[in-house]
Amino acid sequence: MSTRSMSRRGYLIALVLALLAALVVLVLTLGGGAEPSTAQPPPAAQPVAVDPEPPAQGQDAVAALPKSEPVSIDIPKIDAHSSLVPLGVNADNTIQVPPVTTPLQAGWYTYAPTPGEVGPAVVLGHVDGNHQKGIFFRLKELAPGDRVSVARRDGTTASFEVTKVHQVPKKDFEAEGVYDDTAGPELRLITCGGVFDRSAHNYVDNIVVYAKLVGR
């Protein structure tokens, strides 16, 4: 055989062997002869840590209400019932009070939280005026546990329970912390009290009732 024929035969054998090798690879790939995959499945979803709800402020704590203007106040124990007019600040930075000519009218301080919101809502009324008893004439008779209801413009009623009653000299009123921030919804009822100073045409003390929200 010539050298040229042997080279041609060797080329054909090499080609056949290459084709056989390719066929073996194809069979192993398609026929499932390969080893199973060692890739791990996706990890299971892990629970997300959630912070627990903050503890309630006592068993009788009530969630705060959204902002809504108060329209009336009702204090059954002292037979006090009145609509509420908005009160702002006088030129000397003191809180306005309802007109003394209408002593049975109570008012709410518009720069404080509305009753039911977090913080100290403030309602003011006269002890007397225009030669007659005022809406808060009997305010000093309230005691811890007594109830105060404030109807709101959104149709809800904020119910408060009295926690304490203080008679405070007006000269010490700022130190009393009546308007200090509070952790929950509270209410302050304020009127005059104590001895009447005829020279100053005013009472020397204030009666301050503190109450907390207990219902709606």
Rank of each mutant, 00 (worst) to 15 (best):
S68H: 00
L84G: 03
V62S: 08
L30M: 15
A61Y: 07
T3N: 13
P55E: 12
L17Y: 09
Y109R: 00
L139T: 03
K140V: 13
L104A: 11
V27P: 02
P42D: 07
V71E: 03
G31F: 02
G10T: 13
A106Y: 05
V48G: 12
V89K: 06
V25I: 15
A64Y: 00
I75K: 00
V50A: 05
S5P: 12
Y11A: 14
Y109N: 04
P55N: 08
L84V: 05
A18S: 14
Y111V: 15
P113W: 05
G33A: 11
V25T: 11
D60T: 09
L104W: 07
D79H: 14
P76W: 01
I95M: 14
A18T: 12
D60C: 04
T38M: 11
P47G: 08
P99K: 05
N130H: 09
T114S: 10
L65M: 06
S37Y: 02
H126Q: 05
T110L: 08
V89R: 07
T101I: 09
Q40W: 12
V50Y: 05
Q96V: 02
T101Q: 06
L12T: 10
S37W: 01
A63C: 05
N93P: 06
V123M: 06
F136V: 01
L65D: 03
A39C: 08
L20W: 08
P120T: 06
P42N: 07
P41K: 04
L142G: 01
G116Y: 02
P70N: 04
G33Y: 13
V97T: 13
F137N: 11
M6E: 15
E69C: 06
Q40I: 12
P103G: 03
I75E: 00
T94D: 06
I75S: 00
L20K: 07
G119F: 05
E117D: 06
T94Y: 06
V100W: 08
V122H: 04
V127C: 04
G58D: 08
